[in-house]
Structures are given as C-alpha cells and as structure tokens.
C-alpha cells in the first residue's frame, strides 16, 4: 500500500473542527434536556393518564421508534417548510432530535415508573405529601435512578446521532468534516480526526452523566449501590 497519510490540513483547519464540535455539544445538550423533559411527561401520561392519552402517547412512541431519524429530520426541515412553516436548519435539527429523544426516553422512563410499587404511593399518601411532591420525590427520582444506566447510554447515542443533522446543512462536526474534505481531498484523514473527536465527546458525556448521577442520587452515592 503506497498511500501516504497527510494530516497537514489540521494546522490550518483546527478552528473549524472546534467550532463544529462545539455546535454538536450544544445541539446534543439542548435536545437531551428538552427530549428528556418531553419523555418524562409522556411517560407519566402513559402510566397514569386516561385511555385516550395513553393511546396517543403510545402511537407517538411507536411512530418515532420505528422510523429512521434521517427521515424525521427531512420531514421537519423540508416537509414543514413546504407546508408553509419555515424553520432554519438549526431549529429543525433541535426539534427533530428532541422529538426523537422524547420517544426513547418515554419508553425508558415508563419502565422506571412502572417499577415503583403501589405501596410507595400509598405510603406517600399517608405521609400527607401533595400530588406534585409524590410525583417528584416518590415516583420520578427513584424511577430515574433505576433506569439511569439505560437513560445515559441513550443520551450518548443521541449525541452521536446528531451527526445526521449534517444532512440538512447544520454546521456541526460531521458537516465540518465534509466541508474540510472537499477543500483538501484528504477524506479518510478528515473522518479519522472526526471519529477521534466523537470518541472523546462520548467519553466526556459519559463522565458528565456519571457526575450528574452522583449528584442526583444521594442513596447511591452513600451506599455505592443502585436501588
């Protein structure tokens, strides 16, 4: 093999990669926060809501989980704009990623909420907690603690999936790579560099979620064991 690797483009173009990675981080953080909030509400609706609401949430989850993110992004960006709702690529990306994340976190949080025993709710009732207090302290936080590993790996997967938004010209890390490789003709090297950046970002996200978990779940921190 006579191919010579050449990473010389990095000397000049590294600020582009930093900017792209920064947008990837922002996109992912926004979509994770919004999507998790949406998913938690939907999971509560799915477990405690009336039959119509349960059906609706179920349909939403199935529709999103059985279609590709790429097509969801196209529907939000190209589809909605053809119906007259013009959204910028960045906003479309956040909406599509949020809706996608919402469906996956609904399923994960539903499993967590269903694992909370009835007796816990009765005990909360006896202690005179309000409905909101019960939901927050007795249902959601313990539920989240139980499914936290699944939840945080889904978060990391979403960060990686945000690379797909490059297809609607969001200038994140993957789009930056396409741009640089079309300028320098060093395609393989460019994508190698970006792969390493994504690896570092996933490690960073995992570490961040571990820290957040430590902060959120006091029992786990003290006993060193999950629930």
């Amino acid at each position: 093999m006579s191919y010579k690797f050449d990473f010389a483009f990095m000397a000049e173009r590294w600020p582009d990669f930093v900017a792209g990675a920064w947008l990837t981080v922002q996109l992912a953080v926004l979509a994770i926060a919004l999507g998790f909030a949406l998913g938690t509400l939907c999971a509560l609706a799915r477990v405690y809501g009336g039959p119509v609401l349960r059906r609706l949430v179920g349909a939403y989850v199935e529709a999103i989980r059985n279609t590709p993110l790429l097509i969801q992004i196209f529907i939000v960006y190209f589809g909605l704009s053809s119906l007259g709702l013009k959204l910028s690529a960045d906003v479309s990306a956040v909406i599509a990623l949020t809706v996608n994340m919402g469906a996956y976190s609904t399923e994960i949080m539903r499993a967590g909420i269903q694992s909370i025993q009835r007796t816990q709710l009765e005990a909360a009732d006896c202690l005179g907690l309000t409905r909101l207090q019960t939901i927050l302290h007795v249902v959601l936080l313990p539920a989240m603690e139980r499914v936290y590993p699944a939840l945080s790996s889904q978060f990391v997967l979403l960060m990686l999936a945000s690379s797909i938004t490059s297809q609607i010209s969001v200038e994140e890390l993957t789009a930056t790579a396409s741009l640089v490789q079309s300028d320098t003709y060093r395609s393989f090297e460019v994508y190698l560099v970006v792969a390493v950046v994504y690896l570092a970002l996933s490690a960073l996200y995992r570490f961040a979620f571990w820290l957040i978990g430590l902060g959120l779940f006091e029992r786990k921190r003290r006993l060193g064991t999950p629930l």
Binding site: A177, F188, Y191, L192, A195, Y198
Partner: peptide, 23 residues
C-alpha cells in the same frame, strides 16, 4: 467501545473512503 463511541455516519464515510485508499 470504538464502534459505540463513533457515529455510524462516520463509520460509513471511513469505510467508503478507506476502500478507495486500498485501491
């Protein structure tokens, strides 16, 4: 760890351009 830490899209580009490199 390597595969689960990089987007599939990047794997796709790497194999596409990587095949070109090995001729």
């Amino acid at each position: 760890q390597l595969v689960q830490g990089t987007p599939l899209l990047i794997l796709l580009f790497l194999s596409y351009f990587g095949l070109g490199i090995i001729g």
